[in-house]
């Protein structure tokens, strides 16, 4: 499917705290942003890895959780109406003859922009692959880490592995499609919503599905076609027949496509200057955890500073004829108008 092209001043790759704050700094300079993230919501590491844990070193906030910081940033950037594109990974980034950039996501959405801000943190969040011997051979044929179309799972003998919301939700959603359904989890406690857990137990009681307490230790099959798995339980090993396995063990960060954009990576990080936080490619900036320069600290506050300086340089590229006058948000009526407080 090809969607119509989106044209904008700036595309921000990554909706973590630094990408979000970049919307603010660019917005003060009247630059319009689109933010793309592979996650299904904003916040990057803060929202995905530690939403409920406290952060103590955000200036002016003695303590704030990962999710609270994300929510506050969203509130702060609201006046600038950023457009978010979630569940999409930027795969391609190419410079065009007119020095604009063309970006393409894995959903085939195309963006045209003058400036690209890479705020990709530690890379794209991707599902964790259980270290089961030979699992690669089954990926895409019998082992799936996400469900795009439920219809693809009709009449399958499905085994879901995990104990969080994704695992329980897919057990319940796919149950009407599956020929057989089973869930494996290492203990009888679940991290999922209690209601889903109760519904799953009810389905087991009705014999509509099975639950095994244990851990999958081996996959069995041929040529990418799974025939069954070995499950280690407290009572020993059992063989379970199935043709489809859906493992849900959370997400981890993998660098991903950023590596292929010709940015002279050093140890998986993008080198930038410390005046503009521009990469070796003019017009492509990198801020937050993904960049490196002498003295770099991977802290949220460093990314905020980088966003401010980057924005000045981005403005020069996009509006070369306009001069930026330095102003405070406290006293500038024009900035306050943009923020909607005046």
């Amino acid at each position: 499917m090809s969607l119509s092209e989106i044209e904008t001043d700036v595309v921000i790759i990554g909706g973590g705290p630094c990408g979000l704050f970049a919307v603010f700094e660019l917005g003060l300079l009247d630059l319009k942003c689109h933010v793309i993230d592979i996650l299904d919501r904003p916040g990057g590491q803060c929202a995905e890895l530690y939403p409920e844990k406290p952060i103590y070193d955000i200036p002016g906030m003695p303590v704030v959780t990962g999710q609270e910081l994300t929510d506050q940033l969203l509130e702060q950037i609201k006046p600038f109406n950023p457009e978010f594109h979630f569940n999409q990974r930027v795969d391609a980034l190419e410079r065009q003859a007119d020095d604009s950039f063309r970006l393409v996501t894995d959903d085939n959405q195309v963006f045209r922009t003058r400036v690209v801000v890479i705020a990709a943190g530690g890379g794209s969040f991707t599902p964790k692959r259980p270290p089961l011997p030979g699992i690669e051979d089954y990926e895409g044929t019998s082992v799936f880490y996400s469900v795009k179309r439920m219809e693809d799972f009709r009449d399958k003998n499905i085994l879901v592995v995990g104990g969080g919301d994704s695992a329980l939700d897919w057990v319940l959603n796919l149950l009407p499609f599956a020929k057989q359904m089973a869930l494996v989890h290492r203990r009888d406690k679940f991290r999922a919503a209690p209601d889903s857990v109760n519904r799953m137990h009810a389905k087991v009681a009705e014999d509509a599905m099975q639950f095994h307490m244990g851990q999958v230790t081996q996959l069995h099959g041929n040529n990418g076609q799974l025939e069954g798995v070995t499950i280690k339980t407290t009572d020993g090993e059992i063989h379970h027949e199935c043709d489809t396995v859906l493992p849900f063990f959370g997400l981890t960060m993998k660098l991903g496509p950023v590596a292929e954009w010709g940015l002279n990576l050093e140890q998986n990080l993008i080198p930038v200057d410390t005046e503009k936080f521009e990469t070796s490619e003019p017009g492509i900036f990198a801020i937050g955890d993904i960049n490196t320069y002498p003295g770099k600290l991977k802290l949220i506050l460093s990314g905020f500073h980088e966003a401010a300086l980057m924005s000045q340089a981005a403005h020069k590229i996009i509006r070369p004829d306009e001069k930026v006058v330095f102003q405070y948000t406290t006293s500038s009526s024009s900035l306050q108008k943009k923020l909607g407080v005046r």
Partner: peptide, 11 residues
Amino acid sequence: EEDMLDFAFEV
């Protein structure tokens, strides 16, 4: 920690 061990292998 118990919750997090759900994400470890061969617990």
